[in-house]
Amino acid sequence: MSELTQKTRLTNALKGESVDKAPVASVTQTATVELMEMTGASWPEAHSDASKMAKLALASHTEAGLEAVRYPFCLTVLAEAMGCEVNMGTQNRQPSITEHPYKKGIDDLKMPDNLAELGRIPAVVEATDIVRDSVGEDVPIIAGMEGPVTLASDLASVKKFMKWSIKKPDDFKAILDFATDACIEYANILLDSGVDMICVADPVASPDLMNPATFNDTLKPCLAKFAEAVDCIKILHICGNVTPVLDMMGDCKFEGLSIEEKVKDVKEAKKTVEGRATLVGNVSSPFTILSGTPDKVKEEVKKALDDGISVVAPGCGIAPNSPLENVKALVEGRDEYFS
């Protein structure tokens, strides 16, 4: 097979079509302190400043060799635009939600009529222009965003969200529907700005937090509704050991499912979702990319490929203090595997 462009390779791999070699990308957070120091584009400014956001995101492509450009670096852009208060964090600490607009209840849910103009959304849109000018059409651009479950829990507060899941199923459904609509609108803003793919990270949907039965009955339809309303290649990332919900994730209509190393049996996972979705992952972010060696990274890359992973990627967001050489080893491991 002739050499594919990075965009075609990643697209094909996620759709389960044939490729010359597996692509290497991060569908989750990419920035590291080393890259911030190399580029002068640092957190927390790079969360809000379009040119810094673009510069830092590009570095993981140009310096670390990842075969996509992926930004922003947090899961708070939409939440903030929807009324959450955000602590912007520090150079090595991601932004986090500190205040929730609907923790008292769902009586006054209000969808903003100018979402594209709110908070940091204009900065993310502008960053897309800068990144596209820099990399051209052949390199895929992945926009990351919080998923409907995580957004709903940000809007209501995790504690209320969990409580409603049992005690107030109607309110639970209402906040989820509201969050799903917001996610769809935001994803389409991102798509109109020119990104190629969207990675939805939905950590709160993890079986570590929510009952798989709730996932099946209530969360899965929200994710599937989102997927149907957003017309591009999509990846769903859920943290933790998602084995109990993997089959249901396969029904969510995302092309790719990004999993952590906590999913112990990847071969079995692949069988579970075969024909419905491909797997992205699963080199351990904390134990290997942050605290391991390049050789350990390469070893896990090869294992992932042996197990049937379609896109080599960190299992979860790259920890900011991870050494650049370990991130580079993702591509090196893949190249050795296919040489």
Binding site: M162, K163, K167, L209, N211
Partner: peptide
Amino acid sequence: LYLPDVIISAQ
């Protein structure tokens, strides 16, 4: 049981 169950019972 899952975390939401623990939270409402604890409350």
